[in-house]
Structure formats: C-alpha cells, structure tokens
Design a protein around this nucleic acid. Sequence first.
DNA 1: CTTGTGCCCTGACCGC
DNA 2: TGCGGTCAGGGCACAA
Length: 267
Amino acid sequence: MPELPEVENVIRSLVKKLIGKKIIAVGVLTPSIVYNRYDFVELVQDKYITNLERRGKYIIIRLDNGNLLIHLRMTGKLLFDGIISKHTHVKFDFNNGHYLLYNDVRKFGRISYLNNEELEFYLATKVGLEPALMDYEDFKNKLSKKNGPIKKNLLDQTIIAGIGNIYADEILFASGLHPVFETKCLLEKDFFALYTNIREILEKATIAGGSTIRDYVNGDGTAGKYQDTHKVYGRGGKVCNCCGCILEKTKVAGRTSVYCPVCQRIR
DNA sequence: CTTGTGCCCTGACCGC
DNA sequence: TGCGGTCAGGGCACAA
C-alpha cells in the first residue's frame, strides 16, 4: 500500500521519463477511476507534462494548463511502458511512442483533473504538514490540539501528510508509544520522539525504495526493500526484536495495529 | 464541530 | 480441488 516513501519512489522513477512529453492520447478503460470530469480526456489530451511533484500520498502531474492529481490508494500503480492487463484502467500515450499506465487490482485509486486554483484549494484544505519540511513547533501545536489515540491522529492526513498504516506502527514503536496512547497525554519528549521518528523512518524507507508488502512497485516495476527492516508491522504474534516478548495485535481507528506491550507505553 | 461506520474492490489465505 | 468466509485498508459519504 503506497504511503509517502512509496509514492516518492514512484515519482523519482518517472520524472525523467515524463517531463517534457506531450500526451497525444488518453484511454480511459474504467471510468470510475477518473474522478469528477466528464471532459477528462479533452482536458488532458495534447498537453505537455511540465513537472511531477508529491504532496503527502498524492502524485501531482503538472500539465501546461492544469494538473493531474493521482492517489494510488491500496493497489494503484503508475507503470512506464508497463504490461497492459485486465487491471489496466487508464493509458496515457506520449509523442515519442512510449506510454504510462494506471493499473489497479482493486480500483480504489483515483485520477482527477484540477486547474491550478482547484488544486491549491484541495491541497490547502485536505493535505497537512509535509514531514520533511515541517517545523517542530508547528507539528507540536497542531497535534497537541487533537483528541483520541495517537495512531488515529498519525493517520489523519489533514494533520501530517503521508503516513499510512505501515509507517504509523513503525513510528509508534520507535517512539515507545502504544497506538492507543491518548494524544492529549503526550509529553514534550514524546512530541520530540514522534517528530524525529516520523522524519527519520520516512526518509530511510524512501532511500530503501519503500516497502513492498504484497505488490508495490515503482514506475519501473522495481520493488522496495524497507519491509525487511519492519519492527512491528505484519509481525503480530512474533517476537519483539528489542525485548523478546510477543508482539500483540489490536484494532485502532478501524486499522490493524501491531505493537510491543513492553516497549510501547500506554496512557 | 467531532467521531464512528459502511462502502468500494479483488486476491490471498484458511479450514473443511 | 473446490468453496465459502475472512482479511487487507485510504479516503470519502453519511449519520449521530
């Protein structure tokens, strides 16, 4: 499931291949993937790609007259010259004979066309702090106003952008905090640990090419390696590397959460 | 305003 | 081998 490190790697693998290309044709094979525009094809056709950017888990493809906003959700993939299959939903053809596919087994992902104003508004209202760029005081002020379990708030994209279920669990383990630790009870040292670990873990995961749990690959079809260093995610019932006890599993905010009952403080 | 729940969707996996 | 049930979960619509 692509989170910030995976999305960043998708973009890095595509930047050189896409910038400057003209989209000469758009094939929408599954209309439900393309969001909010009946005139999507006309808006995108014959436009040049001027840049690729990431905000949180969103991929922004800048066109000379607007933007494609792409969210891969669980199983979405952008594949340059990839294999066309029954899971191919959108195809962008370029002026040099190459193409970009949007493949998605579960069809949860979305591709929208937004003009610059609409994009700016969307990002400002829906997408929170960017981990690598956020200021510590801004982070602390924003998070400390929230109620409920810390994990729920780490997953809230309007607070901090880009953290999903995998990295939330890893960040909480590294910070010594139980997933249901009440956000209002966090101490200064907890905010600092979270701030540091959010940035460090996401950066290390990005450098490792992201985490491939089931089928994540970047735009070249390359898998990630960070899953090998996961301390808790997907390890419920296994032994904690740190203290040797058994890692436990619970549901927080509707998501499976794995944690160490000894290493992670509660309340 | 916040918070919770169901939904979307397919494939992997488990027990029989 | 097949088959039904369960799980995986990001974000949004909707209800309370």
